[in-house]
Design a protein around this nucleic acid. Structure first.
Lengths: 258, 258
DNA sequence: TCGGCTTTTCGTCAAGGTGACGAGAATGTA
DNA sequence: TACATTCTCGTCACCTTGACGAAAAGCCGA
């Protein structure tokens, strides 16, 4: 292609120009376990291997738009526009992985995003990648392409840490949910067991977190639970839980002597 | 320069290639206030205006290398190699700011870094930018070039949040410091006043945070203080303070009635 | 219909953390 | 030497947390 008349940017000639990809760590809670979304690559490199959904940023796109487009193309998941904010779904930038030594095609910059979603979106295979599927995190996580193993680990760790001091666990839940569902999210993400009674006290007692709807939900055995929603006007990105819901750290207290 | 025989990367032709800059939010505590490092730009755009130190990433560089190089070129600050870890100094990636609408020269990606440093490094003017200087944060922060106001705000907020649950305050201190110096860091970054006695109890009582050196320091009036250092083997990036040192949130409790 | 069983929700209680504050120790200064 | 200043250690009331008991309110099988 001939050099077009597009005005070359007045950046110094020594500056490099890098292809930029966007990779998405999409997490959800299915059953009682945390799952991540992976796709099987159709193209080289790493053809046939599992990878995080993602792809190159096109000219004229924002990073968020690229993340949403790639997700939709490869997995059929349609992220509601502009959902870096409230409600179920939560999209936030994770971090950027440097241009060197991570892509056999050469220096490529990758901006990773973290998506927390309720479990209802079963991905439909299609687009640039075959067979999008949820894989349990921490289990048989086969090696992912590129440095996606590390990106996935960073995303999971970010999610775990954020549950402590932000109302982000609600991003995994439908718009209205029970305290038990919310507790299930914490248990799945942290991989721990939480006392239902204490969790109920803390979750409902934390100001600016939950808001009762007045309705009842749940059809299983046992007493029906009250339905809650995220407190109105809460931006899960910025809101802070006080006091935080801290996970246990010292798992091994000294065994009481006889 | 003619097209060299370097194998063109096999990235899709539709993928964009973006110039990438690295901008550094360098924070320190001087006196009793948090300060940020800014430089005056010598080149267009925004010539003469204050901006965060930074510049374009060169081919063959990692992002961290670019951050260190730009800092050294523009401010004379030499960041010790590989100090994403322990000790004074702390460099971590902040976030990436999208390619659209942030540079008049066209789409430019900017990866921002956060540097926490002790106060000893008085920057020497030179390099690509004139007059590097510390400006107090939150005070007369004149408008910075590009979207650097937002980047600075994000960096300050990250630093404030990280002090709560990480031993990162020590990055602002010399290798050995007193509890009062450490408290001064918290007070400057958070902009609050902390009770010296309670802070002493929490800081020295938190496991895995401080380690007494046995020596005494401080030459001002009053009883000399013991010198501490960061506990051995602590990686401030990953270590977590339990319990966290939480800042006050609800400043207005109900006034007790008569 | 009627006990079990399960789950939610509310209380109780001891242990430990937190903020407010008193007081002694150890220094510089007038 | 008297005083101010700062560091360090204690005390005490209040709150949160974790462990756990128990009532409420629905299913399920006999």
């Amino acid at each position: 292609m001939a050099r077009t008349a597009l005005p070359p940017p007045a950046v110094p000639g020594t500056a490099g120009a890098f292809p930029v990809t966007v990779d998405v760590v999409a997490l959800t809670v299915r059953g009682a376990a945390l799952h991540a979304l992976v796709v099987d690559r159709l193209l080289e490199p790493y053809r046939g291997q599992a990878a995080l959904p993602g792809g190159f940023v096109l000219p004229g796109e924002t990073l968020e738009q690229a993340a949403g487009r790639e997700l939709e193309e490869e997995t059929g998941l349609t992220v509601p526009a502009g959902v870096t904010g409230t409600g179920p779904w939560h999209l936030e930038q994770l971090r950027t992985y440097g241009p060197l030594g991570r892509d056999p095609r050469g220096p490529v910059l990758s901006v990773a995003y973290l998506l927390l979603a309720p479990a209802f979106g079963l991905p439909a295979a299609g687009g640039d990648a075959a067979e999008a599927r949820w894989v349990p995190v921490g289990g048989t996580t086969a090696h992912l392409a590129f440095d996606h193993d590390r990106i996935l680990a960073d995303g999971v760790e970010r999610a775990r840490a954020k549950l402590e001091y932000s109302p982000l666990a609600a991003a995994f839940c439908p718009p209205e949910f029970t305290v038990a569902e919310l507790r299930g999210v914490y248990e799945a993400v942290w991989g721990t067991h939480l006392d239902a009674r204490n969790f109920h006290r803390k979750a409902t007692g934390t100001p600016g977190f939950l808001e009762p709807t007045g309705r009842l939900g749940g059809s299983g055995p046992g007493r029906p639970a009250e339905l809650y929603r995220l407190a109105a006007g809460v931006d899960p990105t910025a809101a802070v839980l006080h006091p935080p819901l801290l996970r246990q750290v010292s798992p091994g207290p000294a065994a009481p002597s006889a």
